[in-house]
Amino acid sequence: MLRAFGFAIIALIVLGAVWYVALLPGHITIDFGSYAATASTPIAILLLAILVLILILFVGIIRALLRTPARVAARRNLSRRNNADAASLRALSAMAAGDDRTAANHARIAQRQAPDAPLTLYVAGETARRTGDHATADRHFAALARHKDAGFLGWRGLVNHRTQAGGDAAALAEAEAQTRQAAVAYPNSVWLRDQRVQLAFNQNRYADAARLATDPPARAALAIMASRTAEGERMAIDWAREAVRAAPSLAPAHLSLYAAHERAGHLWRAKRALVAGWKAAPHPDLAAAYLTSINLPLDRARAAQKLASANPGHPESEALLARTAKAADLAGEAQRHEARAMAAAGSAWVCAACDTKHADWQANCRKCGTIGSLGWVKPPPDPTTVLLPSPQPAA
């Protein structure tokens, strides 16, 4: 309703203006040398308006003609960019499927279409890295790092490539410098923090890695290594305590605190650390450290009873009592504890990320490299083991 009313008002104004012009009196004469043109005032105004419209239309045509090359070039560039993006997406899909050869072919197509596009630079760098062309990978990632919006992808590619292409000191130092550049582009990146942790770990800078780590198991593992490699006794104790705080159920953390106190000459505190460790996380290594200075089998059995009292009934406590009783020729006592220790049989250090079994604890998994992933558990069953059905009694 309001639109119709507004349109009617505008129409009345236009009609009034036309009516006013049509009623204007007089004539207008224009001389062209020996020629003269005379028209009434309304006709002259109408002709002038038409002339102005023709002039505007002419200027518009000229401008359109002048802009045509730029528009054609823009459409061509857009088409090439779309083709490059499509080829880049196909390259990413091929990389996800593990087909590096097909990914490299699509990356080359994307480079021909739009060599400076961020997505093109990324897939070109990734395919070059996967195929072992390190110089080309570095060149593409460096170009991507200079991009205003996608610079972090370039720095990430450079860091990944540098750490995976070689692990020498120079490569690690260069990767460390590149992580600082990446922090400028994206300072709150979780990946960047984890990468700095891994780089510090690879360079044996365990204290720096522990300060950066936020995951408690990883921080505990790094703190243990920092305690073992600390130059001062006070620093070794502080890092061992940090490991216990981060992972109180990790036996090596308590062992590191025991070793740090023993190194400083705090023998009573060292023993107390082992008892606290047994109470929180019983493990044969804790018992071995606790009994290391006791030689007589019967004395070892008595000391084992004292240690086991910190966590009575635990399978590891029962296994410890069974071992020491058997060594002291206490057959009945050993048999009684062996029956209760079955739950601890077969435990090992197993990676929580890939289920790899390790003979001893270490800060990272030797297979997948995950820091702080080892736990004292029973290994999962081997998936290759075939379980045969039980024989059925004859009918």
Rank of each mutant, 00 (worst) to 15 (best):
W239S: 00
S249N: 12
A395K: 10
P383Q: 11
L47N: 06
S40L: 11
I109C: 02
L144Y: 01
E242Y: 05
Y290G: 00
S317C: 05
E176I: 07
A104V: 02
G369K: 05
A327F: 04
R336E: 14
L92Q: 13
R269K: 15
Y35Q: 13
A341F: 09
N77D: 12
H283R: 06
C354E: 05
P379Y: 03
M235K: 09
S309M: 09
Q178G: 08
E242A: 08
G16I: 10
A334D: 10
P284K: 03
L65Y: 11
A288V: 03
K378S: 06
D116Q: 14
N77T: 14
P393K: 08
R263M: 06
T214N: 03
L12I: 14
D355G: 00
S373C: 01
L12R: 06
S309T: 10
V59W: 13
K306G: 07
E338K: 07
C354I: 02
A251M: 10
A304M: 06
N364H: 08
R3P: 12
P248I: 14
A124L: 03
E242V: 05
W361T: 02
R269Q: 15
L47Y: 11
N160I: 12
T385F: 13
K378W: 04
D382K: 04
R90G: 06
P381R: 13
G372E: 00
D285R: 13
L66F: 15
A236H: 01
V18G: 12
L15E: 05
D238Y: 07
A96T: 12
A223I: 02
L374V: 03
T136M: 12
A310N: 02
L172Q: 09
A64C: 04
V59I: 13
